[in-house]
């Protein structure tokens, strides 16, 4: 009749410990399961479309929902997604670098806090607000002050002129979408760059200043080489957001399912075609399956971008 050595209170503590640890671990496993389930459900939903259209789904430009002649392809939305995101990066990255450089090196101390907070608040504004503002404020500006005056002049440049020539009168266009996207991701990239620039040990910068270097030379010769990989990681993080952005783009891109040959033509992206057409497509239809297939492609693209961003940022911002 030996009693257990451990006292009752101690054993309940051990039981509580085990329970709590498994509760936490279980929640962690749930997060893994959610990501796995997202991949799985998208793939299962996309299977009918992949089976029907095969690999050519990836480069087919057709989008025909007429019953009996249904034919769907991914090329237009995929290209639209990549083109708008890349254009947005071209606009946003230099501006974000300027903001980050200003906030870490140039601005007087009393300006840094308020301006930094303002830029972060810009990042907090919901994307639908950007979309609405884009549609009612930015699109008319783009049309009247960029497309109409410059479109024709630039359009007469031989060989590449067609990029600027368009007879689109709605104003909603690839260029407008890229511009709204750029404004949306600017604060994200700027905030990451600022945080990364702050990790440079002051003594490195001070030595360069001591040698007589100007601020720009310190930035180019010390800060950027020291933080290069993380800066690229921050840029990739912005790219990941631009690729998956839905509402802001849906408002201003025009949602036309055809390839845009001009910056001022309407087009569409994966996220906006899903938002526009998925809610009204029939449950279990081939169209719904094709939209899920597009969603799966978007997941693959943004997963690659986000994973590489995280890998590049792994050494900093811990």
């Amino acid at each position: 009749m030996q009693q257990p050595v451990t006292s009752p209170s101690r054993s309940s503590g051990a039981f509580g410990d085990k329970l709590f640890e498994w509760l936490c671990r279980g929640a962690g496993l749930l997060v893994l399961a959610i990501l796995g389930a997202i991949i799985l459900t998208l793939l299962v939903g996309a299977l009918p479309a992949f089976r029907e259209f095969g690999i050519p789904f990836l480069w087919s430009t057709s989008w025909n929902p007429v019953e009996g002649r249904e034919n769907y392809g991914a090329a237009v939305p995929v290209l639209g997604t990549i083109i708008t995101a890349v254009l947005a990066m071209i606009i946003a990255v230099p501006a974000a670098f300027g903001v980050a450089f200003y906030l870490t090196e140039l601005a007087p101390e009393w300006i840094r806090g308020p301006v930094g907070t303002a830029i972060e608040l810009l990042a907090a504004i919901p994307s639908i607000i950007f979309g609405m503002w884009g549609l009612f404020v930015l699109v008319p500006i783009v049309q009247n002050y960029i497309q109409l005056p410059f479109g024709e002049i630039l359009g007469s440049i031989p060989l590449i002129g067609f990029i600027f020539e368009s007879n689109n009168f709605a104003g909603t266009s690839v260029f407008a979408a890229s511009l709204v996207l750029a404004i949306m991701i600017l604060p994200f990239i700027a905030a990451t760059m600022r945080d990364v620039f702050m990790t440079v040990p002051p003594v490195y910068k001070e030595s360069a200043y001591g040698l007589g270097a100007t601020r720009w030379e310190v930035m180019r010769g010390v800060v950027i080489p020291y933080t290069r990989i993380s800066v690229v990681g921050g840029i990739m993080l912005g790219l990941g957001r631009a690729l998956g952005e839905t509402m802001a783009v849906t408002f201003v891109i025009g949602n036309a399912n055809r390839l845009a040959t001009s910056l001022f033509d309407p087009s569409t992206t994966i996220a906006s075609v899903v938002a526009m057409e998925f809610p009204e497509s029939l449950m279990g239809s081939l169209k719904q399956s094709s939209l899920l297939a597009l969603g799966f492609l978007l997941f693959v693209i943004s997963f690659i971008v986000l994973a590489s961003s995280r890998w590049l940022l792994r050494s900093r911002l811990k």
Partner: peptide, 12 residues
């Protein structure tokens, strides 16, 4: 990854 994943995919 979930933090920055496109929210429309979570809808799907």
């Amino acid at each position: 990854v979930l933090l920055s994943a496109p929210s429309i995919l979570i809808g799907l």
